[in-house]
Design a protein around this nucleic acid. Structure first.
Length: 846
RNA sequence: GGGCGCGUAGCUCAGUGGUAGAGCUCUCGCCUUACAAGCGAGCGGUCGCAGGUUCGAUACCUGUCGCGCCCA
């Protein structure tokens, strides 16, 4: 027994973080787990935070939620497989490296072996080779990840720190490439040249899941096309696409345009002949009801182009500027006025030209409308025809869609209603999953192409890397049968230039973390995993894509449970995020209130529910942690010990306490089994405060003694403390470990989760209730008399319903002590329990 | 426009077909030998609104208003 004189929370995180790093109570025992039945293993598909980002209080909350579950499962005796990952590949890292070092990747440059980044980023970005760029990405993420790990240890996450993965590691790259090859072999992945949503800033394709609609000002321009029977007016927000016009379209039922269907009109300025066609997607109420179809202004254009088999007249390039040369059949004269311009200035110029030619009817009519953006981008998306890799996700196939919806129903969602998010998304898909990105820091496609005599790639004869060679980098590795000298020369080969989108790797987090590629025996034992914890904003991306990959490869869902955390929001209910500037830095809060206090607050946020950040709440958690220290010290100072036996608990009030605690244990356990950590904490905490304020106060005088009644009190207090420390342990890992260490051996986090069976049966909780009610009445009398709780009571008369009289009698001695009551009488009465209190005269010179 | 969630005390949130709950805030009181970073007591709500089911609705149903999120 080693109880400090003055218990404190100060330094408790440093102390136990260091200790845990030493003894590692959270280590996953692979050998033992492999011999245990699967249900004795609990595996968690930890979300890998974006290494280039920053962690705020919202992250701390949601990772704490997962940690509570992990700690609970561990105390149940399971082998908890709880890895950590860092998502370090992809665009966010590229952007961070560009800004941090002031560089940019130019794949045409050769590798510079001795390259050192500038001390300070220069005014202009320094172009460096792809390999140098990737090296900087790796360096910087390693630094970022070390900082993340330190924070997570401070938060007390019971992660197995020997099992950390990175989405850019060789193993992750091999996994992503191998899975891609499997998808390709089964026809689930394919490449296609097609119109694609395109971010002109990052110069990459983006997927449907990365889109965001934003309100932007625009204007309807009323433009006349030249028909045989006079002008046909269309209204468009993008007049600059006029040279890309391939048809006009109206709704088939629109009577105004019936005569025009099947005929042709000529475009203004360019005088190109285009057909007038009918299609159900044309909206009669919008503008003049007839629209121009351009290749490509928006997704409707793509649909029309595809379904109506229209020609292609692309005018927007990868950089978002109007191409230098006009499409076939479009006269070069007026086009030259637009060539090389951005969409914005091309629009200004063409409006001038239309005014001059008299084809603009009236002034443009300003509107605001929804425009599609890349969620990380700042300029509206264009649609550019490019060759891209896709994975089928049901967006073009009802059977796959139905199968994926069915998979979603195999998952146990917490909370249940989050399933709708998943189903809505799957059912709303309108295309396959575009996984290729025209970027640098990512997993390359393990593919080369032979080059024909003209030096053009033969796309339909891809050279695939053999699985045993993975991971490969086709831009530096050479396919079998070729030599490096043949790279890029006619008759030689060329690498697929793209990398996979981040989600294409992180969708394999269960496989990466569980050793699909490196430890098949382990993988077989922890997959499908038990839990996917994540926030609701990435159900459409991370969660869905993980289901897709698992569905194809294993014909199974990747986990049995998906626990969805809400956001931490600011007082205006806006999501906390760094970009909004309303994010709270976690380390300050952790230092100010202590980790346990912050975790306590986190545990108060129910699964799926957003919760406002309020510092005042942290104080309450801190108070709880301090209370645990103090009551622990007190109970142990009374002589309670780890060897106290339940058999010693003979007093009815003590038995009542433990009976009540047994109910709490059952409720908390049921709540945690249902992933309702909030409820578990609530019932534990409510009991705890009653334990401190009522039970301890009632028995403390008796417990000071050395007779059988004292032994009963001490044993009950010891049992109650032990059970409560364990109930609190998942939420408050530091303070519970501290108090546990005063009198127990080993870590509380390896102690068995409490069960009602370890508490004596037969007690009547009503005794405690009746005693507490009586004590409250006495306290109220003292409070109203404005005297100290130590004030003596001459007589107290309890009027209780007849059946409660024995309950009060059972606690008589404790009540007399706690209330300082000289004469306590208990008489049967008619109404509810009341107490007449007569205070003793205060000695005049006391 | 479609989907989902939420409206209960000043704030944050529980809750149940049978007399409205907790914590925080606020007010009053108490130095009580575990804790004044504490303890005791008190103030505070026609449970968003309107119908319906029911002996009885804050809870169940319908509608409606407001807020939030997701998707068009």
């Amino acid at each position: 027994m080693d109880v400090p004189e003055k218990p404190t929370l100060d330094g408790i995180e440093e102390k136990w973080t260091a200790r845990w790093a030493e003894v590692d109570p959270y280590a996953f025992d692979r050998a033992a787990a492999l011999t245990a039945p699967r249900e004795q293993v609990y595996s968690i598909d930890t979300p890998p935070p974006t290494a280039s980002g920053s962690l705020h209080v919202g992250h701390v909350f949601s990772y704490t939620h997962t940690d509570i579950v992990a700690r609970y499962q561990r105390m149940l005796g399971k082998h908890v497989f709880y890895p950590m990952g860092w998502d370090d590949n992809g665009l966010p890292t590229e952007r961070r490296v560009q800004n941090y070092y002031g560089v940019r990747c130019d794949p045409s440059l050769p590798y510079d072996e001795g390259f050192q980044p500038p001390e300070k980023p220069g005014k202009d970005q320094l172009p460096i080779s792809r390999r140098n760029f990737v090296e900087l990405c790796e360096q910087l993420t390693a630094v970022d990840e070390a900082a993340f790990e330190e924070l997570w240890r401070r938060v007390g996450l019971s992660v197995d720190w020997s099992n950390v993965y990175r989405t850019i590691s060789a193993s992750s790259r091999a996994t992503a490439q191998r899975m891609f090859l499997h998808n390709l072999a089964r026809g689930e992945a394919y490449a296609q040249e097609a119109p694609t949503l395109w971010d002109v800033t990052f110069r990459t394709a983006v997927a449907q899941a990365e889109l965001e609609d934003r309100e932007r000002p625009g204007a309807y321009h009323r433009i006349s096309f030249h028909g045989p029977a006079g002008p046909v007016f269309i209204e468009t927000t993008r007049p600059e696409l006029l040279p890309a016009c391939v048809a006009l379209v109206a709704h088939p039922d629109d009577e105004r345009y019936q005569p025009l269907f099947g005929s042709t009109v000529r475009t203004p300025l360019f005088d190109v002949e285009v057909p007038v066609v009918a299609h159900r997607l044309a909206e009669p109420d919008k503008g003049s009801g007839i629209a121009m179809i351009c290749t490509f202004g928006d997704l409707n254009d793509v649909t029309w182009w595809r379904e109506l088999q229209l020609p292609t007249r692309a005018i927007v390039g990868w950089d978002g500027r109007v191409l230098a040369d006009p499409p076939a059949g479009v006269p070069a004269g007026p086009y030259a006025e637009l060539a090389g311009k951005t969409a914005f200035s091309a629009q200004q110029r063409i409006v001038e030209m239309l005014r001059e030619s008299g084809d603009l009817d009236g002034d443009p009519r300003p509107i605001t409308h929804q425009v599609k953006f890349f969620e990380k981008g700042e300029r509206p998306l264009e649609i550019v025809t490019t060759r891209q890799w896709y994975i089928r996700n049901g967006g073009r196939d009802a059977d796959t869609r139905a199968a994926l919806v069915a998979r979603g129903r195999e998952i146990h969602w917490v909370p249940e209603h989050m399933r709708h998010r998943y189903e809505n998304w799957v059912e709303g898909l309108n295309g396959d999953w575009l996984i290729s990105r025209q970027r640098f820091f990512g997993v390359p496609f393990p593919v080369w192409y032979p080059l024909d005599e003209a030096g053009e790639p033969v796309f339909d004869q891809p050279i695939l890397a053999p699985e045993e060679s993975l991971p490969v980098d086709p831009s530096s590795d050479v396919p079998a049968g070729y030599t490096e000298e043949q790279r890029g020369v006619p008759g030689g080969f060329a690498a697929d230039p793209d990398v996979m989108d981040t989600w294409a790797t992180s969708s394999l987090s269960p496989q990466v973390a569980s050793g699909w590629d490196t430890d098949p025996e382990l993988f077989a034992h922890v997959f499908p995993m038990d839990l996917r914890p994540q926030a609701h904003d990435i159900i459409r991306t991370w969660l869905f894509s993980t289901v897709v990959r698992s569905h194809y490869e294993f014909g199974a869902v990747p986990w049995s449970h998906a626990a969805i955390s809400g956001f931490v929001v600011d007082p205006d209910r806006k999501k906390m995020s760094k970009s909004k500037g309303n994010a709270t830095t976690p380390i300050d809060v952790l230092e100010k209130y202590g980790t346990d206090a912050v975790r306590w607050r986190a545990a108060g946020a129910r699964p799926g529910a957003d919760s406002p950040f309020d510092e005042a709440q942290m104080k309450v958690g801190r108070r709880l942690a301090i209370k645990l220290l103090n009551v622990g010290k007190f109970v142990l100072g009374l002589g309670a010990s780890a060897s106290s036996s339940a058999d010693l608990v003979t007093e009815p009030l003590d038995q009542a306490l433990l009976a009540r605690l047994g109910v709490v244990v059952a409720e908390a356990t049921a709540a945690l089994d249902a992933y309702n950590y909030t409820r578990a904490l609530e019932v534990t905490e409510a009991f705890f405060w009653q334990f401190c304020d009522d039970h301890v106060e009632l028995v403390k005088t008796r417990a000071y003694g050395s007779d059988e009644a004292a032994a009963s009190a001490q044993a009950a207090l010891a049992l109650a403390l032990s059970v409560q420390l364990r109930l609190f342990a998942p939420v408050l890992p530091f303070v519970t470990e501290e108090v546990w260490s005063w009198w127990q051996t080993g870590s509380v986090h390896r102690a068995p989760w409490p069960v009602a069976g370890e508490l004596p049966s037969g007690g009547d909780p009503a005794v405690l209730l009746a005693a507490a009610e009586t004590l409250a009445a006495v306290r109220k009398a003292k409070s109203e008399a404005q005297v100290s709780m130590r004030a003596d009571v001459a007589t107290a008369t309890v009027h209780a319903p007849a059946d409660r009289v024995p309950l009060v009698e059972a606690a008589r001695v404790d009540l007399e002590n706690a209330g300082r009551i000289a004469t306590l009488s208990v008489v049967p009465g008619d109404g509810p329990l009341t107490v007449d209190v007569e205070l003793a005269e205060t000695p005049p010179d006391a």
